[in-house]
Nucleic acid binder design. Structure first.
Lengths: 353, 353
DNA sequence: ATCGTGGTCGTAACCGGTTCCGCCACGAGG
DNA sequence: CCTCGTGGCGGAACCGGTTACGACCACGAT
């Protein structure tokens, strides 16, 4: 890139330019920039004036290189479009701003390889914290690589944060902010069970994903607590999408297996369930009760409003960056946020046979 | 920060460390890093090995400082949670990744001041492009500041991108990627008019926001084309939220002004409209027809599915970064993406009186 | 009048890379 | 056998800031 022809007004002004214009040394400019050093009022005024006249802005890279920290937190998630992730992202972004940090965003689109690659990029960026949002893959090789990264980040003064996924191990230097996935599933399943449902379908098991594993566990435990066991045929595999919810429900209906309630793995899945039921002329909750998980805004727009498990998205995101950034003073680096069910109108007693 | 005690394994490994371990010079290490220079195969192997052994990653800041560009695009939007913005963000992120860039994300929460402050931050970060997503404020002081930033960014080799908002002026160095807001509103209003509606309420005018201004203009023009004029009493001010849509509808109903259709400024607003109508026992579209704008996923989940204006969110985001990053080879820096109406089931003929 | 002292400011050494320039050894051509 | 060209590599000057260190000045105190 060609440097400026005249010392001013072309290209980006530097401290050198400011110093020259203000008639002071570079270090003096740097001092008023940092603010943390005595500079005579008159001198400061000259410098500030020169900065304004030259429309000067510091070069964040130079500053990061010379100083200690980067003022950037990175967070990686599946997809910004997913309301769940978006809500967490919002919390992350908000808290990062509060802490005076910028946000680096990366998406993986559900690809474990890409997740690894992205973390590498974040290491290059010297991010203060790298926040991994959402469920993790139950793959030991992947977890090993992840552990490696956690240590590498720790070694370079950064921090890995597991947000909405379980810890990697007791000796892995990472901050963990979970939400009570299993108990949420347990609670809402109990809700269904208490209403009298005995044949409940769980739709949307994603293999090897901690999120579903935990939800299915809560689902199963709740049955057990009622002296029951879920019918394996009613636990169906799918994706966390509207289309998948629709397909799974259609299939379930086609199979003819009796059921009186559906536990959709996520609210998005539930929206697909709603449509399939509507097309089958089945009323909610008179014919079939439906519950979801996540409590995204959509839950209110479904007709009838969806009974679901509320997850503290925002708090999840905020806590993640708060703990990571202030880890020097924050004693606890592993928290489990509570979930609770949000009762609305999609659950009723099972229909009389 | 204390430097490493031993030359290896503590802190972050640098090119110097790698060079020492591989028994070559710093410049050689840099050359294999860059890839763009002849290095003997044997030497390269030694270096690569040393890098792996030391778990080396380049320091992006040092690289940015020494080299030319940053490999980062910044984008600022109102709120990640909004489905519209999220969808654009997804496009931005995707294209940025394709172009080998990282994404810096900032939110303004509708605060013009913050938007300005954020752009300043992005300048510090030397972002390759700064993408502003969503409508702009029709405030001349604000636009002036914006113009100033556009020039400043241009001067430092960066680029401002207006994504979903109108150009600032013919001589302002900025890339503009708009969508046809007015024609979309015109089309869907015509759709309503053609169905026989004559008293259509427009809900959700946000003062001084280009987005609503353009939509209202299309709304008005469509009326005019039919030899009509909208009733000013039916154009109501509000926010782009579900709650606002709900409130405005309630109020409209309470006012007793006759109307047979509602044009919600956005789909989110429409969701509030739906609820208010449901509570008033008014059927859609038998009693009231409703249309929205944006075509976010929610439109499909509303009952009945919402007829709305489809906006090419994803393309909007992708085009924004594509044009900005490749502006050297992309001849046109101002594009207007088309919109079209997505007909679903929320519009019918007006009820017989 | 001299010395000590505290407040300001300039000089220079970094931070961790990239890249221009020049050196060296080697093989080929005269 | 000597010279010239060339591929591979090292030395050093940056990029734009921060900061330790020391110089300088004007004070009040002795």
């Amino acid at each position: 890139m060609a440097r400026r022809a005249t010392p001013e007004q072309v290209g980006q002004a530097t401290v050198k330019d400011v110093a020259a214009r203000a008639g002071v040394s570079i270090s003096t400019v740097s001092r008023v920039l940092g603010g943390t050093y005595p500079v005579a009022t008159a001198t400061r005024a000259k410098v500030v004036r020169a900065m304004r006249e030259l429309d000067f802005v510091v070069n964040a890279h130079a500053r990061a290189l010379a100083g200690a920290h980067t003022k950037v937190v990175a967070f990686v998630l599946d997809d910004v479009t997913g309301p769940f992730h978006a809500a967490v992202a919002r919390g992350v972004e908000h808290q990062a701003t509060t802490e005076g940090r910028l946000c680096l965003l990366c998406t993986t689109h559900g690809d474990p390889q890409r997740e690894l690659a992205v973390i590498e990029l974040m290491r290059e960026q010297q991010a203060d914290a790298v926040i991994l949002v959402g469920g993790a893959w139950e793959d030991s090789a992947h977890q090993e690589r992840m552990t490696h990264f956690a240590r590498a980040l720790d070694r370079s003064g950064s921090r890995m944060v597991l947000c909405g996924r379980p810890a990697l191990g007791p000796d892995v230097p990472a901050t963990v902010v979970e939400y009570d996935n299993e108990n949420g599933a347990y609670a809402i399943t109990s809700h269904l069970l208490s209403a009298g449902h005995r044949r409940i379908a769980f739709l949307g098991v994603v293999e090897k994903l901690t999120t579903t594993t935990q939800r299915v566990r809560g689902f199963t435990e709740a049955h057990r607590a009622h002296g029951l066991a879920p019918d394996p045929d009613l636990i169906v595999t799918g994706a966390f999408t509207r289309g998948s919810g629709y397909q799974m429900t259609k299939q379930l209906l086609a199979d003819g297996k009796p059921f009186t309630a559906i536990f959709a793995a996520t609210d998005i899945v539930a929206s697909g369930v709603y449509q399939a039921l509507r097309e089958a002329d089945l009323r909610i909750p008179e014919d079939v009760s439906v519950v979801g998980y996540d409590d995204i805004p959509l839950a209110l727009d479904l007709v009838p409003p969806l009974t679901t498990v509320h997850v503290p998205h925002d708090e999840l995101g905020r806590t993640a960056v708060r703990l990571a950034i202030n880890r020097a003073t924050e004693p606890v680096q592993h928290v489990m946020l509570g979930t609770h069910i949000a009762v609305r109108q999609s659950v009723g007693p099972p229909p009389p046979r």
